[in-house]
Simulated assay, not measured.
Amino acid sequence: MNVHTASMTGTAMAYVSISGVRKTYGSPRGPVAALEGIDLQVREGEFVSILGPSGCGKSTLLKCIAGLEPTTAGQIVIDGRPLKGPPHDMGMVFQRDVLLDWRTILDNVLITAEFIGRKGPEVRARASALLARFGLGGFEDRHPWELSGGMRQRAAICRALLCDPKLLLMDEPFGALDAMTRDDLNLELARIWQDTRKTVVFITHGISEAVFLSDRVVMMDRNPGRIVEIIDIDLPRPRHLALRETPEFGRYVAHIRHLFASLGILKDDDPETGSGDHS
C-alpha cells in the first residue's frame, strides 16, 4: 500500500493543480474557515476521489475547482491556465440530478450542447448513444418525473459526458441511491473511465466506493477542511465488484477506517479489521 502525506510533487504532469487554497466564509460571529492549506495535483487521465465526513469542505473544494466559488487565497490551475471561471472543457454531475421536468430526457441531455451552440443530428445521435449505454434506451421521450431516481442520475451523467469534456467533476452523485443501483453505476462509471481516461475528481463519503473507483484517494478532515492523507490505490483494472471481497481491497478500506477513527470521525470497533461503519 502506497501512502502519501503530501500532494504529488511537481506540477508539470498535473492537469489540475491546487496550491495553498484557502476558503473562508463570513458570518455574524466572524470568518469561518471552510478550507485551509489545500495542496493537490491531479494528473491528466487520473481518477481521484476526495473522501471525508460531512462538513469537511469537500464539496466546497469541488466548487472551487469548477470555478463556481472563488478562493480566499491560493491558486487553482487547470490545463496550464489559472482558473478565472468555469473551465470550458468541464462536465459536472451534482448530488441531485437537476433535470428540467418540462423537457424530455433527450432534451435534458442536449442542454450542455445547446449552451455552447452545438446542434444537429450528430449531437443528438451521441446523446441517444449515451442514454443507451446507461440503460436509458427507449426513454428519450420520457420526462424526468416518469423516471426513478437512479434513472434520472444516469441521465445527468449522460448530460455531463455529452460534449466529451476532458475534466469530469462529480459531487456525491450516487449518495441518494439504493445500494444495488449505486453498485451498477459504479461499474458503469469505471467502464466509462477505462474507455475514455478522462480526468475525474469524485466527491464521496463512501470508503468502499472511493477505493473501488480511484487511482488515488484524498482523505480530508474538518474544522477547517484540510487534506490529512493521500493514498495510491494499487489494484488491477478493469475492476469488478468481486474485487471488494479480496484481502487487498480490504486492507485499503481498513487503513482508511483506522485513520478516520484516529481523527475521531468514526468508531472503529475492531482494531484488526477496521469494522466500524461508514463504508
Rank of each mutant, 00 (worst) to 15 (best):
R96V: 04
V16P: 01
L100C: 08
A73Y: 07
V32P: 00
M92S: 03
K23E: 03
M92L: 11
Q95W: 06
M13V: 14
S49H: 10
I18F: 01
Q95I: 00
K58H: 04
L35W: 00
D89E: 08
L100P: 07
E69I: 05
S19C: 14
Y15W: 13
C56A: 04
V93I: 09
Q95D: 03
Q75Y: 11
F47E: 08
M90H: 14
F94S: 00
L83F: 02
G55Y: 06
T71H: 11
T104L: 02
L35I: 14
M13L: 15
T24W: 10
L51A: 06
L62M: 09
P28F: 06
P70S: 12
G85P: 05
D39P: 06
D107N: 12
V48Y: 00
F47H: 07
L99S: 08
C64E: 09
F94L: 01
V32E: 01
G80T: 02
A33F: 14
G57R: 00
V48R: 00
P82L: 06
P53L: 09
L68P: 07
D107H: 11
Y15R: 11
G55Q: 07
V21L: 02
W102A: 06
D101S: 15
D97E: 09
P70N: 13
G74H: 03
V98S: 13
A66S: 08
Y15K: 11
R103W: 07
E44L: 15
L51I: 02
G80C: 05
G30M: 11
V32D: 02
L99Q: 10
S19Q: 13
M90T: 12
S17R: 09
I38C: 04
F47Y: 09
G30F: 10
A66Q: 03
G74W: 05
V77C: 10
Q41E: 14
G26D: 10
I38P: 01
Q95Y: 09
G85H: 07
P53M: 09
C64V: 15
I18C: 03
N108Q: 04
L51P: 04
G57C: 03
N108W: 04
K63P: 06
Q95K: 04
S19K: 14
G85V: 02
D97Q: 04
H88E: 14
G20M: 11
K63Q: 14
D101N: 15
R81D: 10
G85F: 03
F47P: 05
Y15I: 10
G10I: 05
Q95F: 03
M13C: 15
D107C: 06
S19N: 13
E69W: 01
P82D: 03
M8T: 15
M8C: 13
P53S: 10
